[in-house]
Structure formats: structure tokens, C-alpha cells
Design a protein around this nucleic acid. Structure first.
Length: 456
RNA sequence: GGCCGGAUGGCAGAGUGGCUAUGCAGAGGACUGCAAAUCCUCGUACAGCGGUUCGAUUCCGCUUCCGGCCUCCA
């Protein structure tokens, strides 16, 4: 079955067909690096990582080009640097590094290219010049603005008319704008803030133009998939489309637009003022990244997701069950995705249904009686889960966790086995309880062997 | 005010015009010295009101409630 994706442009599922049948190009809006990333930022990174992995499986690793930018020039960055008394460059480097560590812990592959806005000032200026030359942009008091009136298609993507936008505008309109909807492509920058020389004086780019310029630089004028959070539909993506199509003589920008839903925490929108701001770091403190990833994939990417401690616990517990089965299965070579699993992902990345398919495999694996069946099912389970970025670790590493007391635990287990052989069950239970208090769970396997793992 | 998306069992969460996923928690059973893990069985949910239909949780309309966006935002 062919991959179906829900296209925000048109608001329906469509069969995915890349422009070049052999190569896929995808752009996803990345983070603005001014602070630690929160759990809401993690969602698009994980969701599009799953899509990246699925596309790589289909088209080959070398045939999927995934670009995710880093916005390292922005008002919030300037403000945060000032508040910290930190150099701007130091702040963005530090924050970008933290972001990389966080998403790596969540099991996300690095994108093919990770362009930075500050490294694309040349292409940005060039694109703005093109827009001015074709009268889609104009200069006003040191700024360069995009003229929404010059683009009859403006507003179509996000489904709003210009009248509505004006009527609904809740922000004071700068007096130099010809139209209240016009947005900044370039703005002046004072000497104490980052800026670049340009035909319009020293300044810096607006947020929207960065993505248009960087996607063109790394994917060309037209590419296949553009992703991001739901909140970016307007104005960010609407503006990107306007800039890129107008700069490219009306050529279509991205063919498929994918947007992930929002994450709330304990039922409420995350806000520092509400005290429910949850960074990826906070979450990684409570659980392994793989559990957080599983918890994220429990909901369909377009639906809202409420992040709770209970959800994370459940994810952790469920992964224990999978790794328990994998631990006891014979080593398996390769294997493919299960058909049910593949069909679920093909249907607009239905990860909850895909996880259900994984549970079917788990159940079969637990019931399998021959080594051949076990190896086959374990292989299929791992090969399927790999697309979700799950179940790729060594089961014992997952179940036992980092520990330097393994030898001591093993010794106690031997003592307990001796006691059991002597039918001294009181002593055997005493040792088991002692370990339980330390968070160690024992499992007596058939054949007199005892396994241990860390309790959830 | 405008535009969009939701409402499913104790919780999480798919899906479907009739055969009513999956996981967690819970109950009973098998296995076990007892456990743990695993397996088996069980609970019969689709916000409300109308309409279409032989039949609607699924399609249509209205109502209520919730969330997102309306130039900071994943």
C-alpha cells in the first residue's frame, strides 16, 4: 500500500508521490535556540523523525534529504542573552548543543542538513532583492516589507481572507506598513545587536524569510514535504509560501504540508507563568528517552496530546514488556515490517495503530514455542519498531539499567538458589525481599535459572 | 467576533454504516514452593437532540462542552 499523508494544503489525505520518484526532499521548521527545548518542541522532532525513517526504508538512506533549520537570530535570543548577561553567540551555541543532546536522547536521527540562519544571510538578501525587483516587497523606514496585496494567493493556505485578518488583528499596525498584513523581511539592527550589511543598511532578516531562503538553498525551489507545528500554519507557513512562490515566478513551493498537534501538560497549555513548563531535560530526568518517545507516539501526530506522569509511566512499563520478550528470544537476523504495522504507518503515520500491531507481534512472540518462530517474530518486531525508533537497545541494558552492583546481585541470587534447593524458602524469600527493597525484581525461569531486572 | 479541529469504556487510545482494536489499571483462572513474567477468560464505551437508513458510535443538521490560530509560539 502506498503512503498516504494528510496535506494541510487541501485538508485531506493524499497518496504521497515525490517529485523525483527516486529522491525525497523534506523541510521541517526547527528550533529557535534561546532556551532549553520543551516537551512540545520535542513532538515535531519525533514525528518527523518517524516519517524520515519510514521514507528512508522505502527510498533508501541516501535518497531522502531531510533539512531542519536552526534559527539563531531572533528577538527572543537577544532578550535571553541580555537577561543572562551572556554573549549571543555563546547562548546560541550552548542552546543548540543542548537541543542536539536532548533529541538524540529521544532517539531522533540527525537530519541530513541542519542549516543556520546566520550562515545564510547571503541567500536571504538575494531573495529579498528578487522580491523587491518584482514589486512583491518594498522599503520603508529602514525595513523591507513583503506586500501581501501583491500576492492574490495570500491567505489561501491558512484559509483566511485578508478582510478577516485585518478585522481580527489584535496587534497595533506599524505606521510604515502599506497594508496591515505586510510582514518584515529585513529590519534594521542597532550596533550592539547582531546585524549584517545589506543594500538597505545594517540589519537582520525577519523570521519567515529565513526558512524560504534555507529551504531553497538545500532543497531547491520546489520540494516534497514541509512540516512543522500546527501553530505555524499562520502566519509562518502562509508567509513562507508567499515569499517563495513570488520569488520563484509562481512555482509551487512544497507539495505536502504536514502539521503536528499541540502538547498540553496535565491538561493545560504550557507556560512558564503557569508553572507547568516541562523541558525535555525534566522528562529525561524521570524516564529514559525511549519511554518519552513511546509516550509521544501513543497519540496520532495530528491530535492534541496531554502529557502526564501517568502516560510516561505506562510507556516505560510497556517497553519493559517488549524488552522482556526480546531478552528471552533467540538472536534473530533481520526481518521485515509486519504488514499490519506497515499499513498503519502508511495511513498518515497512524502510530497508535502501529503500536497495536507491535503488541500483536509481542503476543505471538510470547506464545511461540519453537526457536525458529521466536527468532522470526523477534526479528519482525525489531525491524518494525526500528521505524518508530524503538526497541533497538540491548534488552538487558534496558532492563537492568546502568549498575555497578551487578556482581553483588548475582551473588545474592546464587545464595537464594542454594536456599531454594535446600527448600529453605524463608531464607530464599528474605533475599528476594531484600533485593525488592533495592528495586530489583527476580524472575525464576524454568531450568533453575533466575533473571533479574530493575523495577519500573 | 472570524477561521479550524475535537468529544469513544476507570484511564490512555484506534477504527468502523451491521461482525463492537490495542495498552494500562481491575476481577477470576493456569503456571510457580510462593512470587515475577507469560498465557487464558471477563467488564460490552462511543457528549446530547433530531434527520437519512432495514440498521449509525460511524453520514447530515442543531445544541453543549473542550482545544488551537487570528502576525511571539512546536
Amino acid at each position: 500500500m502506498a503512503l498516504q499523508l494528510y496535506n494541510t494544503s487541501g485538508r485531506r489525505k493524499e497518496a504521497f508521490e515525490p517529485i523525483d520518484p527516486a529522491n525525497v526532499r523534506m523541510y521541517v521548521c526547527g528550533p529557535t535556540v534561546y532556551d532549553f527545548a520543551h516537551i512540545g518542541n520535542a513532538r515535531p522532532v519525533i514525528v518527523f523523525d518517524v516519517l524520515f525513517r519510514l521514507l528512508r526504508r522505502r527510498y533508501g538512506d541516501a535518497h531522502v534529504r531531510y533539512v531542519r533549520n536552526i534559527t539563531d537570530i531572533d528577538d527572543k535570543i537577544n532578550a535571553a542573552a541580555k537577561a543572562n548577561g551572556e554573549d549571543i553567540r555563546t547562548l546560541t551555541e550552548r542552546t543548540a548543543k543542548a537541543f542536539h543532546e536532548d533529541v538524540a536522547a529521544l532517539g531522533c536521527l540527525p537530519p541530513t542538513v541542519e542549516p543556520r540562519a546566520t550562515e545564510h544571510i547571503g541567500p536571504i538578501i538575494k531573495m529579498i532583492e528578487t522580491l523587491i525587483a518584482s514589486e512583491h516587497a518594498y522599503r520603508a523606514e529602514g525595513h523591507v516589507l513583503f506586500s501581501v496585496a501583491s500576492d492574490p494567493e495570500y491567505g489561501k493556505f491558512s484559509g483566511r481572507s485578508r478582510d478577516e485578518m485585518i478585522a481580527g488583528a489584535r496587534v497595533e499596525v506599524a505606521p510604515y506598513k502599506k497594508d496591515p498584513g505586510d510582514f518584515v523581511l529585513w529590519k534594521p539592527s542597532p550596533p550592539d545587536l547582531p546585524g549584517w550589511e545589506s543594500p538597505w543598511g545594517r540589519g537582520r532578516p525577519g523570521w519567515h524569510i529565513e526558512c524560504s531562503a534555507m529551504s531553497e538553498a538545500h532543497l531547491g525551489e520546489t520540494f516534497d514535504i514541509h512540516g512543522g507545528g500546527l501553530d505555524l500554519i499562520f502566519p509562518h507557513h502562509e508567509n513562507e509560501i508567499a515569499q517563495s512562490t513570488c520569488a520563484h515566478g509562481g512555482k509551487q513551493f512544497a507539495h505536502y504540508w504536514l502539521h503536528n498537534g499541540f502538547v498540553t501538560v496535565d491538561g493545560e497549555k504550557m507556560a512558564k507563568s503557569a508553572g507547568n513548563f516541562r523541558t525535555i531535560r525534566d522528562v529525561l530526568n524521570d524516564a529514559p528517552g525511549e519511554a518519552a518517545r513511546y509516550a509521544m507516539l501513543m497519540s496520532h501526530y495530528r491530535d492534541p496530546l496531554d502529557w502526564t506522569g501517568e502516560r510516561l509511566e505506562q510507556a516505560k512499563h510497556t517497553l519493559d514488556r517488549f524488552y522482556l520478550a526480546l531478552r528471552d528470544a533467540p538472536a534473530s537476523a533481520g526481518g521485515g515490517m509486519s504488514p499490519e504495522f506497515e499499513a498503519a504507518l502508511d495511513d498518515d503515520l497512524n502510530t497508535p495503530l502501529a503500536l497495536a500491531a507491535l503488541h500483536e507481534l509481542l503476543n505471538e512472540l510470547n506464545k511461540a514455542t519453537t526457536d525458529a518462530d521466536k527468532a522470526r517474530l523477534a526479528g519482525e518486531l525489531r525491524a518494525s519498531a526500528a521505524i518508530l525508533g524503538l526497541l533497538q537497545r540491548d534488552p538487558n541494558a534496558w532492563l537492568k539499567g546502568p549498575t555497578d552492583e551487578a556482581a553483588e546481585i548475582e551473588a545474592l541470587i546464587v545464595q537464594r538458589l542454594d536456599a531454594r534447593k535446600a527448600k529453605n524458602f524463608a531464607e530464599a524469600d528474605r533475599i528476594r525481599t531484600e533485593l525488592a527493597i533495592r528495586g530489583i525484581v527476580l524472575e525464576d525461569k524454568p531450568g533453575g535459572k533466575t533473571e533479574w531486572r530493575r523495577a519500573v
